[in-house]
Structure formats: structure tokens, C-alpha cells
Amino acid sequence: MEELGRIHQLIIPFFGHDLTFNLEVIIMTWIVISILLLFGFLASSKKGVIPGPLQVVGELLVAQLFALTEDALGEELGKKYAPLICALFMFLVLSNWIGIVPMMHEPTKDLNTPLSLGLLGFFISHYLGIKTKGIKAYLKAYVDPFFFMMPLNVIGEVAKVVSISFRLFGNIMGGSIIILVISYLVYNLILPPFLNAFFGVFVGAIQAFVFTMLTLVYIAVQVK
């Protein structure tokens, strides 16, 4: 219970300012990335007509997510941006699930990870909007019904980033705190596996899918 709300930080002085690094998050993100790289390497190294177990999982993920992206963005853009969506989904799912392993922590438990991924989606969607529609049509969308709506439209765009990142962060952090508190109260008997199954596996997978889906939808709204 004492470790509730505590963050392991490395503070480095830098020309009068303090640079703060959340060590736990950085190390866990590296672990997630290296597991994903290893998975990708193993799944694609021995390609065959009769696929091995890892190749089946990889093909399933890639085929489903490519179909989803092409359905939302159309044939041409879908092919181009499906790898991004695949990478986003696999990174988020593994990040949310890695907290099940003892001594490991979810990188998404810290607001910085979801916020940076949300900003990534924000910039990509606006870049694509300008590129496909042209700057004039892009700006015209902000004064859509009439000119006075512009502040509300701008706030609406910023609110998307806040909502997408706080949703993931709050779900994962709330789940991990619930597991911590209830495990402490029942002396780690009986309940923790079920809590881990619900908040770790089930909620983690759903939130990863929702985050990916929303990024895709935001891109699709800008393009069309």
C-alpha cells in the first residue's frame, strides 16, 4: 500500500532546468519493444506454406488489422497506414498485458505514454487531412456551420487528444491500483488471479482495441 502513487524518477540537472526521467516506464517500454521485435523476427524468419504457430498468430493479427484499416481509409491509404495501425495495436496490447507478470509494470500506467501516442495520432491525422484535401478545404472545416463556431471546433480537436489518452491511462492505472489494494486487503488469497484476468487481460485488450480504432477513426474523419 505504501508504494501507491509513487514514481521512480531520475532527475538530471540541465543548464538550470531539471530533466525528469521516469525510469520504470522507460525500461518497461524498452522491454515491450524488444519482445515485439523478437516476435516479429521469429514470426517472419521461417515463412512456409504450412505456417508455424508464431506465423499463424502474426498472420492473423496483420490480416485482421489490414482489413480494418482498408475498410476505414480505402484501398490506397489503407495499404500505406495499416503498418502503423498494426504496430500501435500490438504495442498497446503487449503494454497492457505485461503488468500480469510479477515485478513488471504497464508502461501505459504513466500518462506520458498514452499522451505521446495520442499526439502521434493527432499529428498524423491532421497532416493527412492537409495532404489529401488541400489546405483550403482543411481550414474550411473549422468554420463549418458558420464563423463563430471556430473556437468550439478547435477545442473539439484538442479534446480528442485529451479523451483518447486519459481513457487508456485511467483504465490501466485504475485497474492496477484496484489489483494492488484488493490483493493487500485479502492477503493475496484467491481473488488476485481473477482481478488480473479481468483488469489485465480483458480490459487491457479492449482498451488497446479502442485506442487503435479511435486513432483510425480520427484519421478517417480528416481524410474524408
Partner: peptide, 24 residues
Amino acid sequence: AGLLTRTMLVGQAVSESTGIYSLV
């Protein structure tokens, strides 16, 4: 289904904006 899910998500994102204002 794809179109309806996308429309649902866009509509929900807009109806969530008052919640975001409260959060801010």
C-alpha cells in the same frame, strides 16, 4: 457495420466534449 461503428465513435467523441470541459 464498419460505417456504423465509425459514426458511433465520432458521435460519442462529440458528446464527450462536455465531460472533457469538466475534466479541464
